[in-house]
Simulated assay, not measured.
Amino acid sequence: MGREPSDAEARRTAPPVICYPPETLPAPDLSVYARALEDARVVDRVRVPPRDAATFRVPAGHLFRIVSVEGPQVGDLNLWAADDLSERFYSGKTRALHGTHVSTGDQLWSCFPHLRPMATIVADSLDWYGIDGDGGSVHDVIGTRCDPYTAQLLSGAQYHHCCHSNLTRALAAEMGVSVAEAEPHVHDVLNVFMCTGFTRDTGQYFMKASPVRPGDALTLWAEIDVLGALSACPGGDCGQAHSSDMAHCHPLDVEILAPSKEVPGWAPPARNGYDGSHGA
């Protein structure tokens, strides 16, 4: 262990600087989305079974709503551009721009070189939760997704219903390809409804029982044509177990909603304007 220098306290108390000041981000006009949501109608509904995943497609300028049904349940969300799987949700950059947890007004950004909003959160029935006394909050972009490789590493378990596995099988079925071909496209997720944070003493990622209840929903506006996949996590509300057949699990619904009329002032976002002609 290194010897503490005489100016250690001064070094520790250097003021924090926000890396990406949010006031420089283009701010979505939430009133536009609110008006579209008022009279939008459900045109499709996908039921995601417990400990499984399902895919769905949302045209640009439509909404999709992830709904808790029957009991408290968290879900792992992947998003891709519907016509190009190489453009996918970038949880790390979304975290850098919006923080560790997202809610109304935050956007889900795609990977390089596209770096544009894929979806905007327009309503969140759990936005009342805030940050609790443990430092926990809801809808995180810090967890990667439960996966069979980490389960094998930590416990020697051959578990086949981790969210990574569920998402991989669902994407393979959607695209008509093998699981091996689909797996590289599965990526770090938005943990919908999951309550998480970092412990203050060790900095470890923790989960606790989600506050979600039947009827709670997260509603997003599709900024581009998206293909989505949602896994109903085998941890249930993640209050006790992770990747377990012992947890009480419930289905989730994904509702696709169409606005009743054209939304004035909205257009799909262009891909990022960075000129890479001189090299990335």
Results as ranks from 00 to 15, higher is better:
Gly133Val: 09
Gly133Leu: 12
Gly135Tyr: 11
Ser137Val: 00
His139Trp: 14
His139Arg: 07
Val141Lys: 04
Ile142Tyr: 11
Gly143Val: 11
Thr144Tyr: 14
Arg145Ser: 10
Arg145Pro: 00
Cys146Ile: 05
Asp147Thr: 01
Asp147Gly: 02
Pro148Asp: 15
Pro148Leu: 11
Gln158Phe: 13
Cys162Ile: 00
Cys163His: 03
Cys163Arg: 02
His164Arg: 15
His164Phe: 15
Ala170Lys: 09
Leu171Gln: 09
Ala173Ile: 01
Ala173Cys: 03
Ala173Trp: 05
Gly176Lys: 05
Gly176Trp: 07
Ser178Tyr: 04
Ala180Ile: 02
Ala182His: 07
Ala182Cys: 11
Ala182Arg: 07
Ala182Pro: 11
His187Lys: 07
His187Arg: 12
His187Leu: 03
Asp188Trp: 10
Val189Ala: 07
Val189Phe: 03
Val192Ser: 07
Phe193Arg: 02
Met194Pro: 03
Gly197Ile: 07
Thr199Asn: 11
Phe206Gln: 08
Met207Cys: 15
Lys208Tyr: 04
Pro211Asp: 05
Val212Gln: 08
Val212His: 01
Pro214Thr: 06
Gly215Ala: 09
Gly215Asp: 10
Ala217Ile: 00
Ala217Asp: 12
Leu218Arg: 12
Thr219Pro: 10
Thr219Glu: 11
Ala222Ser: 03
Glu223Gly: 08
Leu230Tyr: 14
Pro234Ala: 14
Pro234Arg: 01
Gly235Pro: 11
Gly236Ile: 10
Asp237His: 13
Asp237Arg: 12
Asp237Ile: 10
Asp237Gly: 09
Cys238Asp: 05
Gly239Ser: 15
His242Ser: 14
Ser243Tyr: 03
Ser244Cys: 06
Ser244Gln: 05
Asp245Arg: 04
Met246Gln: 12
Met246Leu: 12
Ala247Cys: 02
His248Trp: 01
His248Gly: 06
Cys249Trp: 08
Cys249Leu: 08
Pro251Tyr: 04
Leu252Arg: 06
Val254Pro: 05
Ile256Lys: 05
Ile256Val: 15
Leu257Arg: 10
Ser260Phe: 00
Lys261Val: 11
Lys261Gly: 10
Val263Gly: 04
Gly265Phe: 01
Ala267Met: 02
Ala267Thr: 08
Pro269Tyr: 11
Ala270Gln: 12
Ala270Cys: 03
Arg271Ile: 08
Asn272Cys: 15
Tyr274Asp: 03
Asp275Asn: 00
Asp275Arg: 01
